[in-house]
C-alpha cells in the first residue's frame, strides 16, 4: 500500500446511496487502493439538484446549505462519483446562494475543491491506469453534465482504455443525451422515452456488452430501458469496472 499523501471526503449522492451503493463502495475502494485517505461524512443526503432543476429554488437552497455545512466540516477536497451532482455543487451553488451573505463565500470554497471522480483521478492524482482488468466489451456514455457542464471529455475514456483485457468500442451519437434529465424523465415521460430509445439503439449497435457512465442517474435510466427490452447488456459505473480484476 503506498503511503497516504492525499485525503478526500466522499460525497456519495442520494442516488448512489439508495439505488446503486456498489458505485459508492467501488469509489471508496478505488481511491483507497490508490493511496487516498477517504472520509465519508455521515449525515449526507442530497445536493438539491432535483429541486433546483424543477424550479423549487427555496427547497434547493435549503439542501445546498445543508450539504455545504456538511462538507465544510473538513477542509479536504470533495470527490463525487457523479457528473451532474458535481456540476450542481461546482456551478449552481454559487448562483443559488450568491445573495446569501452567510453562504456565498462558503459555496465558492466548496465549489473550488469539488471534483467528479474521473476528474479527480486524472487532474489531481494524475493516473490514467489504475491497474484494472476485466474481460468486457465496453462502450462509454458521456453524461451531459460531466461532458458539457464540467468539460470532462477524455478522462473516463482514458481510464477505460487502460483496463487490461477489456475492449472499448465507440458509441454512435455518444454525446447525445440519454433522456434522463431528472424529473424530466417523469414530467416529459414520452419524450424522454423517445430519447432513451435512440440511446439504446446506439448501445446495441456498438456491440458492447457493458455500458459505462459516471452518473448513476443516467445508468439507472439506461439500465431500466435495457431491462424492458430484455437486453443482456449490463451497465456499470466507472468506479465499478475500475476496481475489477479476475
Amino acid at each position: 500500500m503506498p503511503e497516504t499523501i492525499f485525503s478526500v471526503q466522499l460525497f456519495a449522492t442520494c442516488l448512489v446511496d439508495a439505488i446503486r451503493p456498489a458505485a459508492g463502495l467501488a469509489t471508496l475502494r478505488l481511491l483507497e487502493r490508490l493511496g487516498v485517505k477517504v472520509i465519508v461524512p455521515s449525515g449526507q443526503t442530497c445536493c438539491g439538484q432535483p429541486a433546483f432543476n424543477s424550479g423549487c429554488l427555496a427547497d434547493a437552497r435549503a439542501m445546498a446549505r445543508y450539504t455545504i455545512d456538511l462538507l465544510e466540516k473538513s477542509p479536504v477536497p470533495i470527490v463525487v462519483p457523479s457528473g451532474s451532482c458535481s456540476d450542481m455543487i461546482v456551478h449552481r451553488y454559487r448562483e443559488l446562494l450568491a445573495d446569501d451573505p452567510a453562504y456565498a463565500s462558503k459555496a465558492e470554497r466548496v465549489a473550488a475543491r469539488t471534483y467528479e471522480l474521473s476528474q479527480y483521478l486524472s487532474d489531481v492524482l494524475k493516473v490514467q491506469d489504475v491497474g484494472a482488468q476485466c474481460r468486457r466489451t465496453i462502450t462509454y456514455h458521456p453524461s451531459c453534465h460531466l461532458l458539457r457542464g464540467l468539460g470532462v471529455r477524455s478522462a473516463p475514456s482514458q481510464l477505460l482504455d487502460s483496463i487490461a483485457d477489456a475492449r472499448c468500442v465507440s458509441l454512435p451519437g455518444a454525446e447525445d443525451c440519454c433522456g434522463f434529465g431528472g424529473t424530466f424523465a417523469v414530467k416529459m415521460g414520452e419524450l424522454s422515452s423517445a430519447m432513451l430509445n435512440r440511446k439504446l439503439d446506439a448501445i446495441v449497435e456498438s456491440g458492447a456488452d457493458t455500458v459505462v457512465a459516471c452518473d448513476v442517474g443516467c445508468l439507472m435510466h439506461i439500465e431500466g430501458g435495457l431491462k424492458r427490452r430484455g437486453s443482456n447488456v449490463v451497465v456499470r459505473h466507472l468506479a465499478e469496472v475500475l476496481v475489477e480484476s479476475e
Partner: peptide, 16 residues
C-alpha cells in the same frame, strides 16, 4: 410515465 417504457429500480437492500 417512467414505467411506460422503462423498469424502475428498487431501493438497495443495504444503502451506501
Amino acid at each position: 410515465s417512467w414505467t411506460q417504457s422503462r423498469e424502475f429500480p428498487v431501493i438497495a437492500s443495504r444503502t451506501f
